[in-house]
Write a protein that binds this DNA or RNA. Sequence first.
DNA 1: GAACTTTTGTCAGGTTGGTTAACGTAAGTT
DNA 2: AACTTACGTTAACCAACCTGACAAAAGTTC
Lengths: 398, 398
Amino acid sequence: MLVTKSTQTSPTSPGRVLGVLRAEGPLTRQELQERVGLSRVTMVERLDVLRRLGLVRASGHRESSGGRRAEVLEVNDTGRTALVADLGQSHATLAVTDLRGTVFARDDHRLPVRHSPQEVVPVLLDAGRDLLNRTDRADTLCAMALSVPGQIDHERGVTVAPPTMPDWNGKPLREPFAEAFGVPVLLENDANALALGDYYAMGRPDSALIGVKVGTGIGAGVVISGRIHRGESGSAGEIGHMRIEGSEQRCSCGRRGCVAASASGQALTRDLRSTGVRTLADVVRRVGEGRGDAVRAAAEAGRLVGTVVATMVTIVNPRYVRVGGAIGVLPPFLEALRRTVEANAHASALRNLDIEPSQLGENGAFVGLAGLVADEMLSPATVDAMVANLPPAQPERT
Amino acid sequence: MLVTKSTQTSPTSPGRVLGVLRAEGPLTRQELQERVGLSRVTMVERLDVLRRLGLVRASGHRESSGGRRAEVLEVNDTGRTALVADLGQSHATLAVTDLRGTVFARDDHRLPVRHSPQEVVPVLLDAGRDLLNRTDRADTLCAMALSVPGQIDHERGVTVAPPTMPDWNGKPLREPFAEAFGVPVLLENDANALALGDYYAMGRPDSALIGVKVGTGIGAGVVISGRIHRGESGSAGEIGHMRIEGSEQRCSCGRRGCVAASASGQALTRDLRSTGVRTLADVVRRVGEGRGDAVRAAAEAGRLVGTVVATMVTIVNPRYVRVGGAIGVLPPFLEALRRTVEANAHASALRNLDIEPSQLGENGAFVGLAGLVADEMLSPATVDAMVANLPPAQPERT
DNA sequence: GAACTTTTGTCAGGTTGGTTAACGTAAGTT
DNA sequence: AACTTACGTTAACCAACCTGACAAAAGTTC
């Protein structure tokens, strides 16, 4: 049954007020008052509470209309700190950020190819502590977020069978970090984190957005109504290991004919091996240099992924498609993908469709994860809970 | 910007109480009270209001636990009436129903193949009035809902370019019916209406559901969080006219290589013409009789549609897929579709996936449209507006 | 700089919408 | 008949919010 989650906080609680401010951008007290529907007296009280929690701040003034200028208020998304980590097949990147994704410190680790959680988690714990101490923000840490290249069981806080990382199947991830840092830990798939990053970077539009990530592997994330659509078993958007017709290419997941077996960075590296390519970075470099064989291979991969994205576009009818990952942002790949989508998708889904490379480069996942933390920590429910624990205002001792 | 629509009704308003009752099934007063978080006194008042509006009713009793039995309450979804109409390429079916989709009267009209709104709308108006008068429910009519085989601009209440029905492009549909019947008019795509019908028939589960309709044409609807996902231009799920690789078949929409050009009822009728088939009904009959050529054609169509549905399943990761339409429910078609989905979709999206024929047969669209009306007319906002117009309780004149 | 305007904070009293507490009745079981 | 549970009603109460009045801050205009 579909249960209308009764957060049970009044529609004018401090948390809701912050929600309106978050959704409708910087506002003056009057504008905020109108939108929330509170009297001036009560709004003063709400803002006082939010200010004491460090959740709102002044961001300037409106032009005077003949008298005192109105102060413009905005959500303070730089006061609290998140520890975010982007875990890949062969690397882990950590960063200390604020809730809008500003990076204060980052740290790259190379990982062995077939690493296991037993090895990696302690490394990440140490690296996280280090990184926090390198900034002066450790005391404002409010949550951690982690992206992994695989599915996640959000209920249990556990990874689920990333086909190429068998050691990671069913390993608890939330728990060790939550214990070590004493804050909530959010987990997200890497493609979803990237999609969210681009979504947040666009200013949280009302429209749907599809993020496609083509790096070593292939994945996609679908943002609908401002949230990742996860689906029944948390695998929504996992397009890498669906099969395409007419391919019998063996895939690293053990099956044959997957999209990733023909169009991923791993596949390109394999296919170009005879031309001297050894790593994904080699592929990227050669495409950048305009080497014919590499460019052709990237374009063919773009076409293949494009056929899947065309179906995604037809089904979801999003406003934005953002393509990221080392391969995804290569112009020949993106061009072929774009052409294929335009040729194959439903005509009316192509109107207003905007296919662009991911805007965020290396920090894409960080912005997504930081935004995820922001949505969690600045949600009406969380804020109202903070308000409940706030010591009462001291009545100006004389 | 994503605006958290502030319905501005308190979380304990009568409308919200009804919402809880609707979502969580039949409940006793005590259970309802717990879930909503109201005192007994206030709950009595809420229920009094809802009872006076005819929105709740008793549905039995719990077992006694040693004293008086608790009365079980449920939403009264049979007291109000909807006029629903399912408009097809060559027919129109109207029905008078209650808000759970019980059909009290129905009426089938054959329409000329290239009909225009100018001809059809007056016919529907007359037929609707007739049908209402044939029941004794005209006085409880609260809304009308209409499904059409094409896209809809919900803002303007207008159809948008159904490729095979050029005369219907941009024609206002909401207005004439709203004027004639004096009630709100809801519009929905036919595949969406079918998907909603199956969704409601399952008891509004929490999971996502994909409805696929393969009749004369091909379409699909995606239900996420209890609502149709429409997308940016309202064409989400319109899989019929996306192109598939390796086909150059001319489509009735004017392009080449569409799914519908190879796998729709229209395409099957065309392809089997040399064997004596003339209409869609001929195809269905011959498949039923087990005629080899017809069965093979249906299976091939199922395989083709299956490749698209496999991608849908991978992207949306739904719990349910329901396949309807005259072709869609044919066993050879459905079996081929199922096999193709199981072969091509992402493995983990297949766990818990339930692919079945549409459960509702002829009345599928009616149930979907009636449910749409219910969601609209029993929504907290609508109910609270009704409450505001309710005359105050008369204080028992002596 | 004086007069005016607009924004913002605060105090005080009044209204509203809910609460708890107590009582009474209805409808079961033992 | 005695007990138990469900349900309705009344009355006193209370917290949250409102309106109205006042005042200070911070601009503009002349």
